[in-house]
């Protein structure tokens, strides 16, 4: 068993994309956990020949719920590090080790990837999406007091302390903001490192719509009311 668990939430992902993401991750020699969030075609059948662990939600609960299931698994199995990694092939696999290297220097409990630190990475983001992400950054900063350059990226690594403390209750995409509240609440340190995200036609079609930002904002406001 590796001391690192890469958690990949999956929902109705194209088999070829999922396989390519997993094949990219395998050379890193970390344990991989797929959390199938109630896909119509059960994931275990798609990846039965690849040595990965699959946990399947019977119903679609949302990405936040899938990640928390992965974190619960990491906690029970005693992993030292957990990495969140999107299934749609947007993230370069080598970013996992870059996040872990930063964390192993002991400087932060949670290390986030950021598309906004380097200008060349920033330029890869479609302009409308970039505008929404900047608004999201301001909204997150105001509502959590944590000013990150890119809080809504699905690529982050955390150490055992963070795995033990963090308990995401937001099932959908607002979990990213809730995570920031929990960083503050538990006094967890954090850091961002630059990463490039590749927007393919598939990932843009499959990813959340920019207008979903309104739903995220509503979920965050409701969470503030019903803590």
């Amino acid at each position: 068993m590796s001391e690192v668990l890469v958690i990949v939430p999956v929902y109705n992902e194209a088999a070829s994309v999922l396989r390519s993401t997993l094949e990219g991750l395998r050379p890193l020699n970390h344990d991989i956990l797929l959390v199938d969030d109630g896909s119509s075609d059960p994931v275990p059948e798609l990846v039965s020949d690849l040595a990965t662990t699959v946990v399947r939600h019977t119903l679609n609960l949302g990405q936040g719920a899938a990640l928390q299931t992965g974190m619960e698994y990491a906690r029970r199995e005693g992993y030292r590090f957990a990495v969140h990694f999107d299934a749609d092939g947007q993230h370069p696999p080598e970013a996992v080790d870059a996040l872990l290297d930063e964390m192993q220097r002991g400087e932060a409990d949670v290390v986030f990837g950021s598309r906004f630190i380097r200008a060349d990475n920033r330029a890869l983001i479609p302009s409308f999406r970039r505008g929404i992400l900047i608004l999201g950054k301001v909204f997150n900063g105001l509502s959590t007091g944590v000013w990150m350059t890119d809080a809504h990226i699905g690529l982050r690594a955390m150490n055992r302390r963070a795995i033990q403390c963090i308990n995401l209750r937001e099932n959908r995409m607002a979990y990213a903001t809730e995570l920031l509240w929990q960083l503050r609440h538990h006094g967890l340190s954090w850091k961002e490192i630059p990463v490039a995200v590749v927007y393919t036609a598939y990932s843009r079609r499959k990813g959340q719509s920019s207008w979903n930002a309104l739903r995220i904002a509503t979920d965050i406001l409701l969470r503030l009311i019903y803590r």
């Binding site: 959390v35 946990v55 928390q68």
Partner: peptide, 12 residues
Amino acid sequence: TVLFREISLLQE
């Protein structure tokens, strides 16, 4: 959600 999570982990 907690219940579904528990079932998923137990199944695994």
